[in-house]
Design a protein around this nucleic acid. Sequence first.
DNA 1: TTGACATGTGACCAAATAGTCACATATGAT
DNA 2: ATCATATGTGACTATTTGGTCACATGTCAA
Lengths: 106, 106
Amino acid sequence: MDDLDDVFRALADPTRRRLLDRLRDADGQTLAALVDEHEEMTRFGVMKHLRVLEAAHLVVTEKVGREKFHYLNPVPIREIHDRWISRFAEPHVAGLLALRQHVEGA
Amino acid sequence: MDDLDDVFRALADPTRRRLLDRLRDADGQTLAALVDEHEEMTRFGVMKHLRVLEAAHLVVTEKVGREKFHYLNPVPIREIHDRWISRFAEPHVAGLLALRQHVEGA
DNA sequence: TTGACATGTGACCAAATAGTCACATATGAT
DNA sequence: ATCATATGTGACTATTTGGTCACATGTCAA
C-alpha cells in the first residue's frame, strides 16, 4: 500500500477514465450532465464513480445551490509519471514513445 | 474499455507497484530474486503479478537458460501522463505539484 | 407550501480479483 | 542418468468491486 493507492484504484476502472476524459474535454460539469453522456449506466453508478475520483483527488468539486460542478485535477497523474520516470530519463522515454507510434503507423 | 486497460488494471495493485519500484531500483532481476524481496507472499503470487505486468508491457522479459530476467518499461506510464496532461499544460501542472510539495513541507 | 429538480445514502447481488496449492516442465551440474 | 534449481499451469477459495434500487435530503420556483 502506498499514498497514491486511491489514485491507482480510481484509474483502474474504464468508466472512471471515461469520466476524466469528459472533464478534460469540458471541465466543470454537473452530475446530471455527466449522466447524460453515460446512458448505459444509472445515475447511481456514475455518482459512485465520481465519489471514487473525488476521494483520489483526481476530481475536485464545487457546490453551487443544488448543483455540484466537477473539475479535473491532473496533479496526481503527474505524480504517477514522476514515480517511475526520472527527469533524466524523460527525453529518452519520449523518444521511445515517438518511435513506437511511428512503427505502429499511428 | 480502452487500449490502456491492461496498464491501468496492472497498476491498481500495490504489490505490482512495489515490483515496478524494485525494477526501477535494480533492473533485470529474476523471479527468484524478486520473490526474496516479497517474503510475505509465495512465489506463485509474485509470478502471477509479474505476468499481469508483462501482459501490460510495463515489464519486458528475456529468457536466458532456465532464468527469466525482468525489465521495467516506462513507455505505458508516459502514455497515461499524456492522456490527460497536454504539452501546453505540462509546465503549469509541474508548478502546481511543486507548490503542493512546498505547502505540505515534503 | 407545494411540487419538481439535483444530489446523496445504505443495503443488496453479481462479477472480478488476490492469493494459495498440488502438480508439471525445462535447464544445469555432477 | 540423476537430482536440484528455476519457472510455469490449472483449479480452488476468500475478498473486493461494480452496478442497481428504495429511500432520503436539500434547493429553487410558482
